[in-house]
Every structure is written in C-alpha cells, then in structure tokens.
C-alpha cells in the first residue's frame, strides 16, 4: 500500500465509486424491465384471483382527496368477462398490521354490494399467527361478504350476518387490520364508482 496523500486518497475513492457506479447503472438498465414485469405479473395474478370470471381488465385512474397534499391517484382495475361485461372491480388496500404494512388486492362484485375476493400481497405478520391472513382459509371468507354497513369481525364465533367474518384465533390485531383497511378503502372506491355504477355501467 502506498503512503496516504490526500490527493491519492481522493483519487482512489473517486475511481472506485465511478467504476462501481457505472457497473451498477449498466446492470440496472439490463434487469429493470424484468423487475417491472415481475411487479406487473404479480399484480395481474392478484387481480384475476379476486375477480372470478374476468378475462381481461382495464384500469380506471381517479384522483381522490386524501391526507396527503394534493390528493391521491387511485387505480381501480375493472374486470371484464369474455363478452366485455363488467364482472367486478379490483383495487389495492393497505394498512398497518401487527408488525408492518399489509398490502392486499380486494375484489368488489359489479353490484357494489359484496366482495368477490381477497388476496394478501405483502405482509410481515407473525409467522404461525398473523401471517395466516395470507392463507386461503382466511382470505376465502371475504368472498361474498357484504360491505354494508361495514365489514365486521367476530372472535371465536362463526359469522351469523352476511357482513361478518371470523378473526384468526390469537391474531385479532392482524385480522382487524385487514378488515379496517378494506372498510376504509371500500368507502373511497364507492365514492368513485358509485355514480358510474348508477349510470348503468354495471
């Protein structure tokens, strides 16, 4: 190793950083399309899993008022069957869970009365307890659940009303987080879709 002169040190660090930076930039260009494709593929899978009978979908973008400045752009995926009729709407809902953000795809039937499905896309809940929100047994309960007046959860009891689901034993917080996030999002979505559906588009 050479003696450390300030110029030598600056030179060594600069050269290393530039070379590494150039390599990274090149590699990023190479793989970026694939990463984006992965993201889209996952989104697509989730949309079709919550909208039964949908063959294709299109995207509705709307700006809605939100806590953030200038509002928020929400994306609603309208599922269409083979004849081009609307089967339902899918949208992303997210909210804080027990250990981190829960992000999920929610399907809403075209009548805007019941959910058509739920797919949890991202969650870091406790393994063995909270992470059961990602299991079919829990997600499946949301198929056909009524959204009015709002979705409710029960503990250790089988649901009796159409707007109820059963919380996971020992993971009430995670279950509540899912229900809360959906309820909150459904309201926004209805405010966007309401007039449209009333206009007979469904």
């Amino acid at each position: 190793m050479k003696n450390s002169s300030p110029l030598g040190m600056i030179l060594a660090l600069t050269v290393t950083a530039v070379v590494i930076g150039a390599i990274l930039a090149g590699f990023y260009q190479l793989v970026e399309p694939r990463i984006e494709a992965n993201r889209l593929a996952e989104e697509k899978r989730a949309i079709f899993s919550v909208l039964e009978g949908a063959e294709t979908y299109d995207v509705i973008e709307r700006e809605v008022p939100s806590d953030k400045k200038g509002g928020e752009i929400i994306r609603i995926f309208r599922g269409l069957d083979a004849d081009g009729r609307t089967v339902g709407y899918a949208f992303i809902a997210e909210g804080p869970g027990f250990a981190g953000i829960i992000r999920m795809m929610v399907g809403l039937n075209f009548d805007l009365e019941t959910l058509s499905g739920l797919k949890v896309m991202e969650q870091v809940e406790t393994p063995g307890l909270g992470n059961k929100i990602g299991e079919e047994k829990f997600e499946g309960q949301f198929k056909g659940v009524a959204i009015r007046p709002r979705i409710e959860y029960l503990k250790n009891k089988k649901p009796v009303k159409p707007n109820q689901i059963q919380a996971i034993t020992g993971a009430t917080i995670s279950s509540k987080a899912v229900v809360d996030a959906i309820n909150k999002r459904v309201e926004t979505i209805l405010s966007v879709l309401g007039p449209q559906a009333a206009a007979g588009e469904g």
């Binding site: 190793m1 050479k2 003696n3 450390s4 060594a12 660090l13 290393t16 590494i20 390599i23 990274l24």
Partner: peptide, 17 residues
C-alpha cells in the same frame, strides 16, 4: 493501489456495489 487511509471506505464501496 489503494492508500491505507481510505482502504476501508474503498472496500465498503466495492462490497456495497
């Protein structure tokens, strides 16, 4: 080629890359 004084930062840049 790496001066002793900045060898650790240099290694970190390489590793991070």
């Amino acid at each position: 080629f790496v001066p002793g004084g900045v060898r650790i930062p240099t290694y970190i840049i390489i590793i991070a890359g």
